[in-house]
């Protein structure tokens, strides 16, 4: 029964995409079949398109894994958005502060750690507020999202600006993550970089942590039966903080895709939206690291496909399709919960 849910969710998600796209394209006055083909070709039909789909999926793997991780402790980390922005900021500041001759073996780990730290500090703070003050994490993380958005806007336009450009100083060369078009010629020109590989590895590691480390088992125990966990001596407070810290770190690491992979610096708007889409990815892929990656690729493909058909139908059509996926999957999950004895 439980194993069947991801499969069923995937089928329903695909059906929802196809159905809404057909209706939306038809309503906007174009031929559905040809537009759909165009979108599919844009997302998967060429090396470049595929690479761009995967590039758009990369931050979603990070944030999807982040939200899914917190969910295992039955914590709803809706702050992946702000944690991602904090990761962008932290990695850009550290990367730019290093001496230009810093070798990559030092620069890259430092910048990755900075991104993780940026997100973890926000997530951990929300966890601490939940554990010590009883503030619900949905409220605190939502508020922190707004705080970080305003803070970064001000920093990028003010103190961290480089002359006339509204972005930060570039990070050192040693910190940059390799673009995969160096290895695969067909990916030429795409933004796809090794942050994707790191994201997939981190998603799997986070999953294994939940079953192979005491702290991870404690997180699942707390998420399943908080009162039983308490009676066994599992610390509710420290487990809550731990779950939110790790979740925040994963969301913060999404910043590495933008700063170390794509741009080389941070600017206003970088990373905006992937935290919230990450919630949808986690809903769709909860329970399995591979389902999270697949869900991220689905959303990446819709974003890339939307660009490909932009000339014929508004890209909002793809936003509608995304919303339909979330609604459909939520309905399937609610339904299968009811069926459980």
């Amino acid at each position: 029964m439980r194993a069947a849910i991801p499969t069923r969710a995937a089928v329903v998600a695909a059906a929802a995409v196809l159905l809404t796209l057909n209706v939306a394209v038809w309503a906007s006055g174009d031929a559905p079949a040809s537009v759909l083909m165009l979108a599919a070709r844009g997302a998967f039909g060429s090396g470049y398109g595929l690479a761009q789909t995967l590039a758009k999926a990369t931050p979603l793997v990070w944030t999807g894994a982040a939200v899914a991780f917190a969910l295992r402790a039955r914590l709803f980390n809706i702050g992946a958005e702000g944690q991602c922005l904090a990761g962008v900021l932290a990695t850009a500041v550290v990367g730019a502060a290093l001496p230009s001759s810093t070798p990559w073996v030092i620069a890259a780990p430092l910048c990755l750690a900075a991104a993780a730290f940026g997100g973890a500090s926000l997530g951990g703070f929300a966890g601490w507020m939940r554990a010590r003050l009883g503030t619900h994490e949905v409220i605190s993380t939502l508020m922190l999202n707004g705080l970080v958005a305003v803070l970064t806007t001000w920093l990028y336009a003010g103190p961290l600006r480089v002359g006339a450009q509204v972005h930060t100083r570039p990070v050192v060369d040693g910190a940059r993550l390799s673009h995969l078009d160096l290895a695969v010629h067909a990916f030429r020109g795409s933004a796809l970089n090794t942050s994707l590989a790191l994201a997939v590895i981190a998603t799997v590691v986070a999953h294994l942590y939940l079953t192979h480390m005491r702290g991870g088992v404690a997180i699942r125990a707390l998420g399943s039966s908080p009162r039983a966990a308490e009676a066994l001596g599992v610390s509710t407070a420290s487990t809550t903080v731990r779950a939110m810290t790790i979740s925040g770190a994963l969301a913060g690491l999404a910043g590495t895709h933008y700063v170390l992979g794509v741009k080389g610096y941070a600017e206003q708007g970088l990373g905006t939206g992937v935290g919230f889409t990450g919630v949808a990815v986690a809903m769709l892929g909860a329970g399995s690291p591979w389902a999270i990656v697949a869900a991220a690729v689905l959303f990446g493909a819709m974003a890339q496909g939307g660009l490909a058909v932009n000339a014929r139908v508004p890209s909002d059509v793809l936003s509608v399709a995304q919303a339909a996926v979330i609604l459909a999957v939520a309905a399937v999950r609610a339904n299968s919960r009811q069926e459980r004895p």
């Binding site: 079953t211 404690a218 399943s224 066994l232």
Partner: peptide, 28 residues
């Protein structure tokens, strides 16, 4: 609700009964 963690396996529940496992760090 209080005695066992429903979503965890029998093995995980039995192991968590050991306070050294439930309240400490390290490999499970």
């Amino acid at each position: 609700g209080r005695g066992l963690v429903g979503e965890l396996s029998v093995a995980e529940n039995v192991m968590l009964g050991d306070p050294e496992v439930a309240a400490s760090e390290g490999r499970f």
